[in-house]
Simulated assay, not measured.
Amino acid sequence: MTTESIEAAERLTHVRAAMGRAARLTGRAADDINLIAVSKTQAMDAIRPLIEAGQRVFGENRVQEAQGKWPALREDSPALVLHLVGQLQSNKAADAVALFDIIHSLDRPSLLTALAKAMDAADKRVPCFLQVNIGAEPQKGGCPIAEVPALIRAARDADIPLLGLMCVPPEGIEPAPFFALLAKMAREEGLTRLSMGMSGDFETAIMLGATDIRVGTALFGERPSAARPVPASGRGMIRNSRAE
């Protein structure tokens, strides 16, 4: 094995051990939680060692970036599963449906309409998480809490497979109350999966019911470059900057 592969295996082992410790506190096992390795801004050469170490589930924030990496990576490893964990623009819905296996960022009626149309055209149903703006932060994506029940009903009416709820808690604040609120909302709507928890708080998320955690830095190390600049107009902004 190369040095990169050894280091990737060590990081993966460390994360899975932490998952196991947290899961046992709630009567679960690490295998009950889906570990999504968030590979946004990571080059293919940085992703391959983690694949070699046994990781099979990955997440990307941007459709265009994923299109440049994952078709080639999947040629070598067809069993890989790819999640879209970042904000999705409606005009990218068809591309997202074509490339991703699961989408975590359904958060508004206009996107629901675009996704339903794209799924119908592709004759493909892509399971989705409904993203909740759990901290009521105006700069972030996510459905307002009060509008979640209506959006869930609309998704079900549109035959979009709804897996559960997703959130990104406010930065710099204890995340546990936000995770607990998301879990309560999911129970009330009969949804069983919770996409919550990132590199710095995934153990807390697991103890509060997370079924899917989005981990980037703990698996890849610090990212090689900063996020792309926001256009001067603000349009096209990727608002969910903490998707891992």
Rank of each mutant, 00 (worst) to 15 (best):
T3M: 15
T3Q: 15
E4D: 14
E7C: 11
E7R: 14
E10C: 12
E10G: 07
L12W: 03
T13N: 09
T13Q: 13
H14A: 15
H14M: 15
R16S: 01
A17S: 14
A17F: 07
A18D: 09
G20T: 04
R24G: 13
L25E: 13
L25W: 08
T26H: 05
A29W: 10
A30H: 08
D31Y: 12
D31E: 15
D32P: 04
N34E: 15
L35G: 12
I36Q: 01
I36K: 02
A37Q: 06
S39N: 10
K40D: 02
K40H: 10
K40P: 00
M44W: 09
D45N: 14
A46H: 07
I47H: 07
R48F: 04
R48H: 07
A53P: 00
R56P: 02
V57P: 02
N61Q: 04
V63H: 01
A66Q: 02
A66K: 01
G68C: 13
W70E: 11
L73Y: 08
R74P: 02
E75L: 15
D76H: 15
S77G: 04
A79G: 13
V81S: 13
L82D: 01
L84H: 03
V85R: 06
G86D: 03
Q89C: 08
Q89R: 06
N91W: 07
K92Q: 11
A94I: 08
D95H: 09
A96T: 00
A96E: 03
A98P: 02
L99I: 05
I103W: 00
D107E: 09
L111W: 05
L112W: 00
D120R: 15
D120P: 01
D120Y: 12
D120T: 12
D123L: 14
D123V: 14
D123W: 13
K124N: 06
K124T: 10
V126R: 00
P127R: 07
C128H: 00
F129Y: 14
V132A: 04
V132I: 10
N133A: 11
E137Q: 10
G141A: 12
G142W: 02
P144C: 07
I145K: 12
I145T: 08
V148S: 04
P149I: 05
P149A: 14
L151E: 00
I152W: 03
A155S: 13
A158K: 04
L163K: 09
L163I: 06
I173Y: 14
E174S: 12
A176V: 11
P177Y: 08
P177K: 08
F178S: 00
F178C: 05
F178L: 13
L182I: 08
A183M: 04
A186L: 03
L191A: 11
R193S: 15
R193Q: 14
L194M: 12
G197F: 05
M198Y: 01
S199T: 10
S199N: 08
D201K: 01
D201F: 05
M207F: 08
G209E: 00
A210Y: 00
I213A: 04
V215F: 07
A218Q: 05
F220H: 09
F220E: 00
G221T: 06
E222R: 14
A227T: 09
A227C: 13
P229S: 11
P229L: 10
P229G: 05
P231F: 09
P231H: 11
A232G: 07
R242E: 07
E244P: 07
E244Y: 15
